[in-house]
Amino acid sequence: MGVFGISIYPNHSLVEEDQDYIKKAHAYGFKRIFTCLLSVDGNKEQILHEFKQTIHFAKDLDMEVICDISPRIFHELNISYNDLSFFHDLGVDGIRLDLGFTGREEAQMTFNPFDLKIEMNMSQATHYLENILNYQPKRRQLIGCHNFYPHRFSGLSYDFFIESSRKFKTNGLRTAAFVSSSAASFGPWPIIEGLPTLEMHRDLPIDVQAKHLLATKLIDDIIISNAYASDDELKLLSKINREKMTFNVELVEGISELERTIILKEPHFYRGDISDYMIRSTQSRVKYREHAIKPFNTRDIKRGDIIIENDLYQQYKGELQIALKDMPNSGKTNVVGRIRKEEIFLIDYLQPWEMFAFQEWKEA
């Protein structure tokens, strides 16, 4: 199972502030850190000393640290792909190559004596991955991570994201992508208009971004790209159920305790005989067939509604459904809740026989 991570940018922050953020993220169960060494302009020894301090602090908390390295740094510090001892001395667990080599060099890097992970840029419309695999790398040391995009409208298109992610996943490689905090104020560059991987995520709440990445089933690790995310955002991500899609739902005032129990406490799975109009969860109608469910709030049904069949639907009484389309209501169906508007698109990702759940949510 993948992990959640944060990003830190020592070139633009203070050691103490980074360490406070790392400590807080660790307390919420975050396991991974993305960082980058953009330049060593100025006092090189001081910059590297502070960088090491922060990395060692994270390692003491058993967090994995992957460092993004630009070709400029390779040149400035006279580092060769044949000798990665510099990164071992820094204390990182791996390096991310934003711009790669020819494939042979990356494959050779995976055999480094320090067991450093070699992370590739997944956001490329090339045969880069295939080139590397042709040179027979040590696969367990090879991982992938998408880019993030500070310029509005420059983020990845959804279709390209799926295509490029699938290349890595079908080859059994660990994958990662970025979500953007609305509370954070900086990233690696001066321009920042959000910092997501996917353009469609730029203005979405951070937990919805993460749920969407998980729903694609193509991304293992999810990293907050900008710093510093708020306590509320860290908490939201820490509470996401990675094992099954869990929708935030606003319940209708006045529903019965039985309906509340069916929604929030009973297990749900997507029945396998697919309908264009609804996702059906049918076990509750078996369990509660002897219980009364009186007609209540039988307005017409909208996509994203949570509905439960009432007494008038006889043998269907107690069945829970998620509406995929707008439908008229015959009066036999109680509209008992509605999925949070930002999450409604996620219902299209549920697959037949897949488990799902709801948690109560109220709009602020």
Rank of each mutant, 00 (worst) to 15 (best):
K287G: 02
P205F: 11
V208S: 09
V252F: 15
I219N: 00
D276Y: 09
D41T: 14
A177D: 00
A292E: 06
I224M: 07
Y349A: 04
I143H: 03
F345S: 04
G254C: 04
F296G: 01
E257P: 06
A210G: 10
P150L: 12
T102A: 13
A184Q: 09
K317M: 15
Y81I: 08
E199Q: 06
P267W: 05
N131R: 09
I274C: 12
Y128C: 01
K52V: 05
Y316F: 15
M200F: 14
I6R: 11
A292H: 15
S181M: 14
M63R: 02
P328N: 09
I95D: 01
Q283M: 15
R289D: 03
E193K: 12
I132C: 06
L77T: 07
G100W: 05
I69V: 15
K362P: 04
S281Q: 07
S39V: 10
K167R: 09
R242A: 04
G42Y: 12
S230M: 14
I222A: 07
N134P: 08
E45Q: 11
S164W: 04
T216W: 14
F160P: 01
M355C: 07
I162N: 09
R242H: 08
P352K: 13
E199S: 08
T126M: 06
I206D: 00
S256A: 10
Q108Y: 13
D62K: 14
S225Q: 10
V335N: 00
F111A: 08
L258G: 04
R174I: 11
T102N: 11
H146L: 07
P10K: 06
R139T: 00
S185P: 09
F178C: 07
A27N: 08
L116A: 06
Q19A: 11
